[in-house]
Design a protein around this nucleic acid. Structure first.
Lengths: 352, 352
DNA sequence: CTGAAAGCGCTTACAG
DNA sequence: CTGAAAGCGCTTACAG
């Protein structure tokens, strides 16, 4: 009952033929090549004839045909985003930032989700994402994204959002990252500073064995000379945080838990609650992301704010050099710095 | 420090010329028209020559050029999604469902966010979203989306996700909706059944003055003969729920609050908590959506589950008739039914 | 500064 | 069942 059908019986109908540069040329009394020059911001057009053409474009409601432009070898006019996910907070915001920047620069954005981690599915997704006239942005912060990034052949206009690289920062495609290591280091130090003997870590999936968030957490622990517990590998969702939390809750020596994202923290907190361990009196929990909900939870979540929208904008800026030099210039975007937001879910270590 | 630059100095480089149907034709020893027939599933090709061509395609790694296909008047090969948002849970899931279904059917998906509600911005967004060879899907569940939908000229291959229509369900573009009215009605009845004298409503933005969720809530209230308080107009985010909650918390007659989404419910619950009104002992709160976090909150959120991913798939299925009849058939997708998930945030009305 | 040419990679008719 | 033609709407050279 909640769907209405088509009113016409014509399948696969096409919009009526739209106005072309020839129509514009005729209206303006010039050749169509001149129209092409005008829409491509060529400087080699007399000011007065430019006005004539512009007026005709306006009158006729002309819009250049993207397919024709691409086919004729025009400049890149779109970006497609290859991502393992569109609904998780960080991915959704990154996509949003890319779309916003792309739209501002006059570019279309395509999206393709990397659903499976089968090798063939990944190479197929990459192959389909590569099209003449479009640049590629890969969200490669986890394993599947990283594998897709690795599968992009050379020569493709490309940028990526990656995990903090370990060493070899030069070479490869242009990319941005958040300083995961420092963020985790800072959050861990904060908890240690609250008097906790050690900090447990529930990790989100990583693109590498040696995740840089894990590295930052470990570094802080080692510096402080505290014990370094085995990190718990979690997924992305609250449920896996909950499962990790149930295990952790049973261990009385656990008094502080750092979580790879806020969703995990929500799950850990729930598990602690069910186990009768009050937050933060018995256990302190810190997340990553600062989702819109986090500040309104009870207890309000102490978390590391990560500005993914800004990161998305920065990512788009990276493909700027590949794009039409005559379009809207793409300003380099400043990269966001992670910021610890102190709220209610972490407190002093319980006295023994 | 967290960005690496380009390694080559060549701006706007293009991928090296890829293999065309002529290359395939040469390799297979046929004319390029025959190759065209093969890739378009034409039945008028001898089985043996089809095999020849297919083998050549495989060998050469041929992929048809989308721009050329579109320009030559081939079938629709992509959908672009026009949406007011990509990061809110419902929108993100709907987009995800569309992308998933589109990918399965072999279609590219584009996305364009309706950022501003200025008339010009909307018509401009619509105009840019309409391109030869692409169908349009408009997420029109709120005012800005509905205005964009209204601005789509006739003749464009189009489908939409809309609010439950009031009466005139026939005519117009094909569209899907969730039964908002019944869902709100059911949730309100549930609260009433718990002994609450009335139920307050904090609404999400709607595409119409007379939102059907509001109508369902009102209908349940009127049926029960209880008082019908003025609905509170909220936004999408927890903060506006929090603000509404602060006002509601001050009114002792408020014992049950229905919220237009889970984010709003999170904000209301926080406000109640701060005002010293325990949930659900003093106030019951019910949300809409059932986000992944909701079941792990404390109290776990009682909410109406809305399957937006399925809705997205159903929405894509609606553009099926416009698409290439020779591609993967797009099966009609069943529409999700809202389902009340009873958890901890609603309980019996407090005794007076 | 402006016009006429050639061609991008395909797809539909149209012939055989 | 298969081939040769014309053209989709643009863009880059090339001429003037």
């Amino acid at each position: 009952m909640n769907v209405t059908g088509h009113t016409t019986g014509e399948p696969a109908s096409r919009t009526s033929r739209s106005v072309s540069i020839r129509d514009v040329a005729a209206a303006a009394g010039v050749s169509y090549q001149t129209v092409s020059r005008v829409i491509n911001q060529s400087p080699r057009v007399k000011q007065s004839t430019r006005q004539l053409v512009l007026a005709a474009i306006e009158d006729l409601g002309f819009r250049p045909n993207r397919a024709a432009r691409t086919l004729a070898g025009g400049p890149i006019g779109s970006v497609t985003v290859l991502t393992p996910n569109t609904t998780l907070y960080g991915y959704a915001c990154t996509l949003n930032g890319i779309e916003e920047a792309a739209r501002a620069a006059g570019f279309a954005v395509g999206i393709r989700v990397l659903e499976s981690d089968a090798e063939e599915a990944i190479t197929d997704a990459v192959a389909r994402a590569i099209e003449p006239g479009t640049a590629l942005i890969v969200i490669a912060h986890d394993r599947i994204g990283a594998r897709a990034l690795a599968a992009v052949p050379p020569g493709v206009p490309l940028a990526a959002y990656v995990e903090t690289p370990v060493g070899d920062e030069a070479g490869g495609p242009p990319r941005v990252w958040i300083d995961d290591r420092k963020a985790a280091y800072d959050a861990t130090r904060y908890l240690l500073g609250l008097g906790h003997t050690t900090v447990h870590y529930v990790a989100i999936p990583s693109s590498t064995e040696a995740s840089q968030r894990t590295a930052g957490w470990r570094m802080a622990l080692e510096e402080a000379g505290g014990p370094v517990p085995e990190p718990v590998q979690g997924g992305w969702h609250p449920r896996s945080g909950y499962e990790a939390g149930r295990v952790l809750a049973g261990d009385p020596s656990v008094t502080a838990v750092l979580c790879g994202n806020d969703d995990l923290a929500v799950g850990v907190i729930r598990a602690m609650h069910e186990a009768g361990r009050p937050i933060p009196a018995s256990v302190s929990v810190v997340g990553f992301d600062d989702m819109p909900q986090s500040e309104f939870l009870t207890p309000a979540l102490t978390t590391v704010r990560l500005d993914f929208t800004q990161l998305g904008r920065a990512c788009f800026a990276l493909v700027g050099p590949f794009l039409d030099p005559r379009g809207e210039p793409v300003p380099p975007a400043p990269l966001p710095q992670p910021e610890l937001i102190v709220r209610e879910s972490a407190g002093p270590a319980p006295s023994r």
